[in-house]
Every structure is written in structure tokens, then in C-alpha cells.
Design a protein around this nucleic acid. Structure first.
Length: 308
DNA sequence: AGCTCTTCCTGAAAGC
DNA sequence: TGCTTTCAGGAAGAGC
């Protein structure tokens, strides 16, 4: 499943292929995962791709209209985006099984290809997504700031102090916090588990019960794991491939993810799997000791004491 | 308000 | 063997 390193790898690939190209046509299959398919089809043709960036797990294409929208009639003129505003943004989230690839128009189209952006150089940008957990939306230039602000900090850019402020003040379990895109943008299940193992923190620990030392270790390991994964072009589990259809190699470095029952590479204890925040969470029961089972009242007293 | 649970979807794998 | 059931997971929205 694509998380920050996979999306970053895809963005870097697309960045070499797309800026300068124009979108001639949009073809859609199933559209239940697209915010406004009519708007998507009407507002993109005639746009030139200026840049490709990443907001958390969203891939963002900055588009500039080089010719007037074909259907700028009274009906579509009411729409913010179609009404001739020059700069718009196409945002794509890959969900679980989404793939965004650039192929020659003549190349065969794989099943579950639900959006095809026909380019002006004989190629196509294709969105393929078996489960359709992804999302495609178009935003006016004026809406992008607000959209970004609803997401949390980028884990590669966040300072240790900001990390501690966002995580160390929260009651939720650390695994839930790492997965919450409004806290940090871009973390997913694989890198949450791998970071927690490296920082020796149990996934069910509460954010506000982590020590300063643990917060510091987690901040460091989150960044380290993500940077290493980007270097190896992401993790290919399930069906992830980058913009050129190439799989990543970080899955070979996984220490806990999908290793239930196998020995911990640090201490040889058997890796366990539990459900935290509705997600499979893999951890080493010896390196990552579980929080003590305590009654709620005792937890509160402890939390107050710890805060001093 | 803040946190957790449920739901969407498909294909792989387990179960019978 | 072959059909049926179960499960995985990102994030919106419901529920507590």
C-alpha cells in the first residue's frame, strides 16, 4: 500500500515525465471514488502540467489552462474551477491499490483502469485501482492552502519540538496517532510499525504517556525509516509499483511488518500481531514492552503526575 | 472535543 | 475439486 516513501518515489518519477505536457482528453471508467467526475472531465482538457508535488500521501499536479475550457457555457461557468480560473490542482490519493503510471497510448490497458489522462506526446497518465479506495479531486488555486492545512506536519520536515507537541499531548494510542493524517501527513501502517520497533515503543502506548526520551527516539526513527525507504524506492507489498512500473526494495528491510511468528532480528523473540486502532500492528513483545493494564482512574492519576 | 468503530471494495487465501 | 467465507486496509463518517 502506498505510503509516504512510495508516493514520493512516484512523484519523482512523474516529475521527470510530465511537466510541460498538456492534457488533451480525460477518459473515465468507474467514478465512485472521484469527488466530481463531471468537473474532472470538463476542466482538465487544455491544461498544461506545471509541476508535480506531494502533500502527505496525495500527489498534486499543478495545472494551467492554456486554451479556454471547451464547455465554458452558462452551466459550467457557475463552477469555481471551470469558470476560467487559470490555475487548478489535480489531487490523487492512491488508497490501498492505486497505481499512477505513464504509458504509451498504444500500450495495453490493464483492468481496473478508471481514469486516463491523454497527453500531447502520444502517452497517457493512467490511474488504475482494483479496490477504488483511492480518491481524485480537483481544487481551485484558492482552495489548495485550506486543503493542505487540514493535513498535519510532514514527518520529514517536522522538528523534534513540534513532534513532541503533536504526539506527547494526546491521549490516543501511539499507533493511532502515527496513522492520523491530521497529526502527521504521510505515515501508514508499514512505516508506523517499523518506526515503533526501531524506537522500541509498543503500538498501544498512549501518546501522552511517552517519555521525552521515547518521543525523541520516535521522531528520529520515523525520519530515518522514511528516508531509507525513499532511498530504496519504497516497499512493494501487495501490488505497488512506481510511475515506471518498477517495484521498490524496502520490504526486504522490514523488521516487523508481516513477520508474525518470525524471530525479532534484535532479540529473537517471536514477532506478534495485535489489532490497534483497527489495524494489524506487528511488534516485538520483548523489545517493545506493552503498557501495563491499568484501570482508567489509575491512568489519569499517572498522567497528571507525569506532567508534573 | 477527542477517540474508536464501521464502512466502502476486490482478490487472495483459507475453510469446508 | 470447487464453491463459500474471511480478511486486508486508508480515511470518511458515525457513534460513543
Amino acid at each position: 500500500m502506498p505510503e509516504l516513501p512510495e508516493v514520493e518515489t512516484i512523484v519523482r518519477g512523474l516529475r521527470r515525465l510530465l511537466p510541460g505536457r498538456s492534457i488533451l482528453d480525460v477518459r473515465l471508467g468507474k467514478t465512485d471514488f472521484i469527488d466530481d467526475p463531471v468537473q474532472l472531465g470538463e476542466s482538465l482538457p487544455g491544461c498544461r502540467i506545471e509541476s508535480v508535488t506531494r502533500h502527505g500521501k496525495f500527489i498534486a499536479f499543478e495545472l494551467v489552462r492554456s486554451v479556454p475550457a471547451a464547455s465554458a457555457d452558462a452551466k459550467t461557468a457557475a463552477s469555481d474551477v471551470a469558470s476560467g480560473e487559470a490555475r487548478i490542482h489535480l489531487l490523487v490519493h492512491l488508497g490501498m491499490t492505486g497505481q499512477l503510471t505513464v504509458r504509451l497510448a498504444a500500450d495495453s490497458t490493464p483492468p481496473h483502469t478508471h481514469a486516463t489522462f491523454v497527453l500531447d506526446d502520444g502517452r497517457e497518465l493512467r490511474y488504475t485501482d482494483i479496490r477504488r479506495f483511492g480518491r481524485i479531486l480537483v481544487l481551485a488555486d484558492s482552495q489548495v492552502g485550506e486543503f493542505r492545512d487540514r493535513l498535519g506536519a510532514d514527518p520529514l520536515e517536522i522538528s523534534e519540538a513540534e513532534f513532541a507537541r503533536r504526539i506527547g499531548t494526546r491521549h490516543a494510542r501511539i499507533k493511532a496517532l502515527l496513522l492520523d493524517q491530521r497529526t502527521l501527513r504521510g505515515m501508514g501502517n508499514i512505516y508506523a510499525d517499523e518506526s515503533l520497533w526501531r524506537a522500541r515503543i509498543h503500538p498501544a502506548r498512549q501518546g501522552d504517556l511517552l517519555t521525552r526520551r521515547q518521543l525523541r527516539a520516535l521522531h528520529r526513527q520515523v525520519r530515518s525509516v522514511l528516508q531509507t525507504a525513499i532511498r530504496l524506492r519504497g516497499s512493494s507489498v501487495s501490488d505497488y509499483v512506481d510511475a515506471e512500473g518498477i517495484p521498490g526494495r524496502f520490504q526486504l528491510r522490514h523488521r516487523v511488518y508481516q513477520r508474525e511468528g518470525e524471530p525479532c532480528t534484535r532479540c529473537a523473540a517471536k514477532i506478534r500481531r495485535i489489532i490497534v486502532a483497527g489495524r494489524s500492528s506487528y511488534f516485538c513483545p520483548r523489545c517493545q514492552p506493552p503498557p501495563r493494564e491499568r484501570k482508567r482512574a489509575h491512568q489519569s492519576v499517572d498522567a497528571i503526575k507525569r506532567r508534573g
